[in-house]
């Protein structure tokens, strides 16, 4: 029986919500309205590489990178503990993904309430205890904190999945072959969990690098990342062409880094031991 029609809704979805917007972004990014006639231009792309914009882009990658590293450092031990069968791992996992059920904006606003310089919850408490206050709202630190908090579960889950899949007998085999607990972690557990780490890194880094709500709120508009610049082009200066160009550059960089990760992943699965 021909069931091709089952795919039609998805194809329509893809055309309407992915393909057409993409074509429009490309159209806006590469064309300019020259007295009523549309002409091809590389001007927007060139403009995106001007120092102020290029710096914002680099800064985005830097902060997202730092957030990703912190997420990894926090998530890995946590995932190890949760994946241990003999602990109450599943309830711990539940506690950690619980905040994910809340709206992203709400969670970020909550941090704002906590961190506010003058009458934030933390500082009120510190003042009451006669301790120096914490002034991080409006700094990159607050932005990175927001990224780590919001995206941590996306790092924990794939790593946990990879760890839980490891055959316990493989660990016994390593033990049998002379590896102590630390050697087992470095030589067996970590290499076997790399696919999980890869997807965790992708799932944290991608939204972090493009985020604009977190820098808007926790950075008080003082920390301008590429996401903010793109947002401003579309919503404030109405320079859709330039906004599109920056989006395209960001997209190309993201696609390239994804391809790179995929390659590392494939090499590992092919059994090429780099560890």
């Amino acid at each position: 029986m021909n069931r091709k029609w089952l795919a039609y809704p998805y194809i329509i979805w893809m055309i309407v919500f992915i393909l057409i917007p993409l074509i429009m972004v490309i159209y806006y990014g590469f064309t300019i309205d020259d007295n009523g006639s549309v002409v091809f231009t590389l001007g927007y792309i060139r403009k995106a590489f001007e120092p102020i914009y290029f710096k914002a882009m680099m800064k985005s990658f830097l902060y997202a990178g730092i957030a990703t590293v912190i997420c990894f450092l926090l998530a890995y031990p946590l995932a190890l503990i949760i994946a241990k069968k003999d602990t109450k791992g599943s309830s711990m996992l539940f506690v950690f993904i619980l905040p994910m059920w809340m709206n992203f904006l709400l969670r970020t606003y909550a941090w704002l309430t906590l961190l506010e310089t003058n009458n934030g919850v933390i500082n009120t408490l510190l003042k009451a205890l006669n301790l120096p206050t914490l002034n991080i709202i409006g700094t990159p630190n607050a932005v990175i904190l927001g990224m780590v908090y919001n995206f941590l579960p996306f790092m924990v889950l794939p790593i946990y999945n990879a760890l839980a899949k490891i055959d316990p007998y493989v660990l016994e085999a390593a033990n049998d072959l002379g590896a102590n607990a630390i050697q087992r972690l470095i030589k067996v557990v970590f290499p076997l969990s790399i696919p999980g780490v890869m997807s965790g890194v992708t799932m944290v880094f991608m939204p972090a690098v493009t985020s604009f709500v977190i820098p808007n709120l926790l950075g008080s508009g003082k920390v301008n990342l590429i996401g903010n610049l793109i947002e401003q082009q579309f919503l404030m200066t109405y320079n859709w062409g330039f906004g599109s160009a920056m989006s395209l550059i960001l997209m190309v960089i993201i696609l390239m880094s994804m391809g790179f990760m995929q390659k590392i992943d494939n090499n590992l699965e092919g059994g090429v031991g780099i560890w």
């Binding site: 493989v170 085999a173 090429v272 560890w275």
Partner: peptide
């Protein structure tokens, strides 16, 4: 081991 338990990340 009964099911070999080889290291799949190594050749």
């Amino acid at each position: 081991f009964q099911r070999y338990a080889l290291f799949t990340h190594l050749d």
